[in-house]
Design a protein around this nucleic acid. Structure first.
Lengths: 151, 151
DNA sequence: TTAGATGCAAAGACTTTGCGCACTT
DNA sequence: AAGTGCGCAAAGTCTTTGCATCTAA
């Protein structure tokens, strides 16, 4: 049975499978990605990689993230005004991004099923479940707004 | 509430109402926004404003867009990897952004009603209908992919 | 008059690219 | 051995900021 293999091994083999080389930097980045929960900016990933291999440069991380994205290993989203965030493709989910406190919450992609069907039917548009990012106001901030207004 | 006044006059009066000054640059930007359909980047808006008043600078346009956004006159979204796009608040809608061809389609915010209810109920998260941007693949690109694969 | 608004230019944040050496295969 | 991949540094976008000047009120 092809159980969910070691995700790290999967990444490396999809690199090899594409005819590219497996290098120190790629291995490190893959390790960091596998060990990571949630979203990380290219800069955060670089810092994490450099803990393991200090000589790896930012530009390499950007190049590798592009490569990994072509291979379908990672996806990135632009959640706010700031840097793009990356995460492994495995975790299919959407993002709720609070405009006030910038907190982001990951939610199951299932929430988008109905919308997805609607958009395909109406516009022929196939929503990408990896990339959904919804802006709004989170529960906590809504409370504080309410409190403020009542005060 | 009164009739939908001249939108330009509304913008200017909300500037005055906030205690700020109405200037040449603000008037021009407001004119351009009102005359504009769809989304424009800060750069496009600057170019358009400069047709009317060549001395208005990019930095001013950025500052004014911030100010207009605070006043609730415009909103901006980050549709893709590129520059943010701005449009008047009046037109409440969502965006479908194609990842292959970068085309963006505006759709009625009503599509998000169900999702919106679901997110409030489940997460206490209030979706901002002005900011919704959904990534995916548009009808045309889906066709060309299909053709390619069959060839 | 006078504090806010602007133009200009420089700085900043994030990302991409050119080049020659190193390392994977 | 051969050519991909890498580090470094510079360049490129998009956006923000400092400051002296100008102007709306």
């Amino acid at each position: 049975m092809s159980e969910p293999l070691d995700p790290l091994a999967e990444i490396l083999s999809s690199i090899r499978g594409s005819g590219r080389r497996v290098t120190e930097a790629k291995r490190r980045l893959a390790e960091v990605l596998v060990a990571t929960t949630g979203h990380r900016t290219a800069d955060e990933l670089t810092t994490a990689v450099q803990v393991l291999s200090p000589e790896v440069s930012t530009s390499t991380v950007y190049r590798l993230l592009d490569e990994f994205e072509e291979l379908g290993v990672v996806v990135h989203s632009h959640l706010g005004h700031a840097a793009a965030v990356y995460h492994l493709t495995g975790t299919v989910h959407g993002h709720l991004v609070c405009q006030r406190c910038e907190a982001t919450v990951e939610i199951p992609a299932a929430h988008f099923d109905a919308l997805s069907r609607e958009l395909v039917t109406t516009y022929g548009f196939m929503l990408d479940r990896h990339h959904v990012a919804i802006s709004g106001t989170c529960a906590r901030c809504r409370e504080s707004v309410a409190v403020t207004e009542h005060a």
